[in-house]
Amino acid sequence: MTVRPDDPAPNPHATEAEVEAARENNKLAQVLYHDWEAETYDDKWSISYDERCIDYARGRFDLAAGQVELPYGRALELGCGTGFFLLNLMQGGIAKSGSVTDLSPGMVKVALRNAEHLGLDVDGRVADAETIPYEDDTFDLVVGHAVLHHIPDVELALKECLRVLKPGGRFVFAGEPTTAGNFYARWLGRITWKITTTITKLPVLAGWRRPQAELDESSRAAALEAVVDLHTFEPSELEAIARRAGAVDALAHTEEFAAALWGWPVRTFEAAVPDEKLTMRYRLFQYKAWLKLSALDEKVLHRIVPRRFFYNAMITGVKPGAPAQ
C-alpha cells in the first residue's frame, strides 16, 4: 500500500459550523461529506469484494465497454471512494495494476486499506478530478463509479482523463444519476425517512429507532449530500459532454428502473434503523429481490421504457490514436 506522507489527514466528524461553511465551498463539502462516510460507506451500500460485487462491477464495465481486449495494463479510478469499482474490476480480470484518487483523504485511506487486504497492486493520491496528478499517456484505462455528478466541471474532468490515457485507451464511468431517476429516488428517500423516523418514535417500536445523536448526524450528512450532488444527466447529454472533451466512440447506457423504485426506499429504511435489526435473512431477501427486478429491467422494461427514465447512467469513450505497439 502506497500512501503519500504529504496528503492531508481525514476529518471524519464535521461540526455544524463546518457544514455551514461547506454550503459556500463545494470542494470543502465534498471532502467533509466523503470523509464522514468513508469508514461506514461499504456497509451503507452493501459493498463487498467478493463474487457478488465482482460480478456487479464486471457487469457494469461489460455493458458500457462492450467486447474489448483484456486485461488492461494500468488503470486509474477517479473519485475512488472505498475502491469499490477498480478493486472489483481488477479481481474480475479487467486490469493488472491500478491507482486510486479522491478528493477525500478518508476515502483514499480506506481504498488503499481494502487493496492491501485483497493483495492488489494499487497506489493512491488525494487529488482533484479536474487536475489529475499524473503525466500524459500514463494509463490504459480510467474508471469511476458515482463520481461525475460530484465534479463541478465534468467536461474538464473528462479532458483530464483523456490526457492521462494512452492513445486508444478507454474511460468507463458508471452509477451516474439520470435527471428523471434522481427526481423519483430523492422523493422516495425523503418519504421513507419521514415515515420510518416518525413511526419508530412509538414506544412499541423504540427498539427499531437509532439513537437521536446518530439520526442528527445522518441529517447533517444529508444536508451535505444536497451540496455535493451537483449534476444529474440525460444520457444524450453525457454522450455530448464526452465528445466535446475529445473522446471518440462515446456511448451512454442506462439501467435500473424497477430496481431503483424498490431499492431507494429500502436503502433509506436501512439507514434509519439499527444495524442489528437487519438480519442476514433480511439482507439476502433484499439482494434477491434486487436481482429479480434488475433482470426485469434488462429483459423487459428496457424495451418499452425510454432510457432517460432509468436511474443509473454510464458513459464510455476512447482517446483518439492507435495504441502503442
Rank of each mutant, 00 (worst) to 15 (best):
T2L: 10
D7W: 07
P10L: 07
P10V: 06
E16V: 03
V19K: 08
A21W: 06
A29V: 00
V31M: 15
T40G: 11
S46G: 05
G59L: 05
L63C: 05
A64P: 00
Q67I: 02
Y72F: 14
L76V: 07
T82I: 05
N88T: 03
M90V: 02
T101N: 05
P105F: 08
G106Y: 10
G106T: 12
G106M: 11
V110C: 10
A115P: 00
D123V: 00
G124K: 00
I132Q: 08
Y134G: 06
E135C: 04
L141W: 03
V142C: 12
V143C: 13
G144Q: 07
H145R: 02
A146T: 13
V147H: 02
H150K: 05
P152S: 11
V154E: 02
E155A: 05
A157F: 11
E160Y: 09
E160I: 06
L162W: 03
V164P: 02
G168I: 10
G175Q: 04
E176G: 03
E176N: 06
A180M: 04
N182E: 03
R186P: 00
L188C: 12
W193Y: 11
I199F: 09
L202Y: 09
V204M: 15
R209N: 14
R209T: 12
R210A: 12
R210D: 12
L215W: 00
E217F: 10
S218Q: 11
A223Y: 01
L224G: 03
A226M: 03
V227K: 08
L230K: 09
E234V: 02
E234K: 05
P235F: 09
I241M: 13
I241V: 14
R244D: 07
A245W: 08
A259Q: 03
A260M: 03
W262S: 11
G263S: 04
W264R: 02
P265D: 09
A289Q: 10
A289W: 04
S294Q: 11
P306G: 11
R307A: 15
R307V: 12
R308L: 05
F310M: 10
A313V: 14
P323L: 04
Q325I: 08
